[in-house]
Design a protein around this nucleic acid. Structure first.
Lengths: 152, 152
DNA sequence: GGGTATGGTCTCAAATGTAGACCGACGACT
DNA sequence: AGTCGTCGGTCTACATTTGAGACCATACCC
């Protein structure tokens, strides 16, 4: 049974096509030929994408784009993340130099997380992704309904 | 102990700052206030981002950007994905209308996956992400080394 | 006839993520 | 003074997801 459906037609303008041409040249960086493991040494671009594309990391970076946050405030803003995952994600973002962590000499402890310059730079492509998602989610919802209607 | 380090300085040009301003206005879409669950109904933008940012979906979309692929060819190109995850990811991308699936009347079965117009449109922000990742991975690697040196 | 490839499904083990208890100190409230 | 909530996590038990490999029928190639 063929489940093919073409999606809503979207016309790519000249700028978009130009971006895609450069894109094709660079996408090879994502697929290491016969690499034992596509990690930071073999596939750095892929490794970095896995970080920035990660669900929680993405949301944390966006949350911090407006202003620095405390740990609990970040957890409240993101909403459905566990403490364990928030700690782990922040730890990795800090390690990658995308987020900074400042501990205040208070008791109980008070910690502030903020974007670094590198983290702020990441917001530019993330903004493009956000913009696309905002424009595409109606089409995606419609596609899901068609698919589900066909399948059962 | 403060583990703060500012990351390498990156100067954002005027265009980037303009993008960020619009971005701040739109990022609210990612954080539903007190939503029971941030799903497609409560947080459509977030739901779509979770799809496109997903590690395997991202790689599949990029792999298909150059030309359509068969299932096994896609698995070889991506490299370290399991059959189970490839099937599941393709199934979801098809359901979202980003990828099309064409079954040829052959035995054994032969299936071709290709990007739809909507999937191709997603490549524009994905290309921006890829471009940023290509430019940032050296800084990220350096940040990781500094972090690891401090921590032990 | 044997080996390889096709596009998956299924099962089990391993890995990852969630929820909540727990910690000491402090501020707010009664 | 006593109680409660908050802070920023860690830890544990459990739930969920993912990876690895066996398995399937068919066809092609040697």
């Amino acid at each position: 049974m063929t489940r093919e459906h073409p999606g809503n037609p979207v016309v790519l303008d000249a700028t978009a096509r130009q971006v895609l041409q450069v894109f094709s040249e660079k996408s090879a960086a994502l697929f290491a030929p016969e690499a034992p493991a596509p990690d930071m040494d073999n596939c750095p671009v892929r490794d970095v994408l896995a970080r920035v594309g990660d669900k929680w990391s993405l949301l944390i970076l966006v949350a911090l784009s407006q202003q620095p946050h405390r740990f609990s405030a970040l957890q409240r803003q993101v909403g459905d993340i566990s403490k364990r995952m928030l700690t782990q994600s922040l730890r990795m973002l800090e390690r990658d130099g995308l987020v900074s962590r400042h501990v205040f000499p208070t008791k109980p402890p008070s910690v502030e997380y903020a974007l670094t310059a590198l983290g702020e730079a990441a917001l530019v492509p993330i903004a493009a992704l956000l913009d696309w998602a905002a424009g595409a989610h109606d089409d995606i919802r419609a596609a899901r309904l068609r698919y589900d209607a066909e399948a059962g």
